[in-house]
Design a binder for these strands. Structure first.
Length: 168
DNA sequence: CCCTGATTCGC
DNA sequence: GCGAATCAGG
């Protein structure tokens, strides 16, 4: 219970995330406090996993999204307790029309998503079925419905987020 | 300087 | 096998 050992579970996660094109540091942070970037790189090297040119593309996409793993463990609580700026006048736009049009699943992947396509994630990165919304961008990185959720200044309930990610 | 992955090397 | 240190590169 003490040593940060490469359990089969962790190794599995490592391989999946690595194949998705995540960086070593990203994976290290995602796997928890006990795992360093060096540990990830060392393990990857030992496993003989290789980076293809395709993975490089993925990383570029992720970088452009400024995707960052949670600093500690993956936690839904963080979603619910997002501080978010208080802000004075402009509350988040929450068009009721958009809510009714909320897409219900991914049409793109981190590999296929391109400019002008909504980056809203469905599912859990590293797990089967993970994908991105992929519908036409309305604002920033998201389609109208997801921008209404992603860009609102007030915190949103974890339940709502999970539902929109197809995890509810 | 920040970051990246690759490789080495002592444990 | 493990991971810190170190390497070369962007």
């Amino acid at each position: 219970m003490t040593s940060p050992i490469w359990t089969p579970e962790r190794t599995r996660q490592l391989m999946t995330l690595w194949k998705e094109g995540r960086t070593a540091a990203w994976i290290a942070r995602a796997l928890g406090p006990g795992v360093s970037r060096c540990a990830v790189l060392g393990k990857v090297y030992r496993l003989g996993l290789a980076r293809g040119p395709e993975a490089r593309r993925v990383r570029t996409v992720l970088t452009s999204l400024q995707t960052k793993p949670p600093r500690k463990a993956v936690s839904i609580d963080r979603l619910a307790s997002r501080p978010c700026a208080a802000s004075k006048s402009k509350a988040g736009v929450a068009p009721s029309a958009a809510a009714t049009e909320t897409p219900s699943g991914p049409t793109a992947t981190v590999l296929s998503v391109g400019f002008g396509q909504c980056r809203w994630p469905y599912g859990v990165p590293g797990e089967a079925g993970f994908g991105l919304c992929g519908r036409s961008v309305a604002r920033g990185a998201f389609c109208a419905a997801h921008a209404a959720v992603g860009y609102q200044k007030r915190p949103i309930s974890a339940e709502s987020l999970l539902r929109m990610a197809g995890l509810g």
